[in-house]
Design a protein around this nucleic acid. Structure first.
Lengths: 142, 142
DNA sequence: TCAACAGTTTAGAATAATTATAATATATAA
DNA sequence: TTATATATTATAATTATTCTAAACTGTTGA
């Protein structure tokens, strides 16, 4: 998925026009070794730091949503006040460090398969994900 | 926890002044058999339906947060765009129906104990919760 | 190559959810 | 019952996100 390279082709393949802005954003998001967890705000900051030119906030929102809709990004809700995106789009689990408010990916094999016994009639399960909240001291654990 | 009754005493016990508004809100939230999942908006609507007098939105926010801080409510993040509260404050799991956007509680025994193998050094685990997303058809499963 | 069109970007306005403010009101302790 | 601390309220402010409409750009095909 969009790793290391030629984002122009990658974007085109999925029907997203490879505009200058989209390509730049892809470079920032996907030209890295490990998963990147970010908020729109983080991303906007990174863009203005690493790039010379500015990209409008509206475009950042649009692009992130376009990438999300094409399956290149995944949205994760932890806090009501922040929306995180994750470049790791597989079904996987997370640790959330309540001290630093950081998200940490958790490999499938680091949490034993979750056995769900309940069934909602007429519905099928789309995903089963675990959130492990950690902190160094006695925090309020909401 | 604040079930069935005398909310005046209950509130006082935890250092929350039992004002008229807080007692009313407690009655709406906790005078019920099953768990109540709601957004601030849901609650505001319910208040204006079931009560004659109005309670200001600011008060509703303040009260919900006060109740949350005292451990009477739990906040749950599913969508970035909605913040749910839950009158069931125990560590427990949820089903989320993506068709209806409804939260459904899941008893501890309906999901087998989750075995977390990973450790974050220097941190202790506060909670381990599972979110099972369900839908009737092939939905986008973000 | 280039014109035409559809899709995209942009600044700024609009909206929605939440929080802050400051005046008024209320609960509680003495 | 009075003084004081705390709560409520309407409204303003703030924040995150989405909308809008004009200007711009990528792509297609003549």
């Amino acid at each position: 998925m969009l790793k290391n390279m030629n984002f122009i082709e990658k974007l085109r393949e999925t029907g997203l026009r490879p505009t200058k802005q989209r390509v730049k954003i892809c470079e920032i998001l996907f030209n890295r070794d490990k998963t990147f967890h970010f908020t729109i705000n983080d991303l906007a900051k990174k863009i203005s730091e690493e790039l010379n030119e500015k990209i409008s906030l509206a475009t950042i929102y649009n692009t992130v949503h376009a990438l999300k809709n094409k399956g290149y990004l995944k949205e994760i809700s932890i806090n009501s006040d922040k929306s995180y995106f994750d470049t790791n789009t597989s079904v996987h689990h997370h640790f959330y460090d309540e001290d630093t408010q950081q998200l940490i990916d958790c490999d499938e094999n680091e949490i034993e398969t979750v056995n769900v016994k309940k069934n909602i009639t007429g519905k099928k399960i789309n995903s089963v994900e675990v959130l492990v909240r950690v902190a160094s001291n006695n925090h309020n654990q909401n």
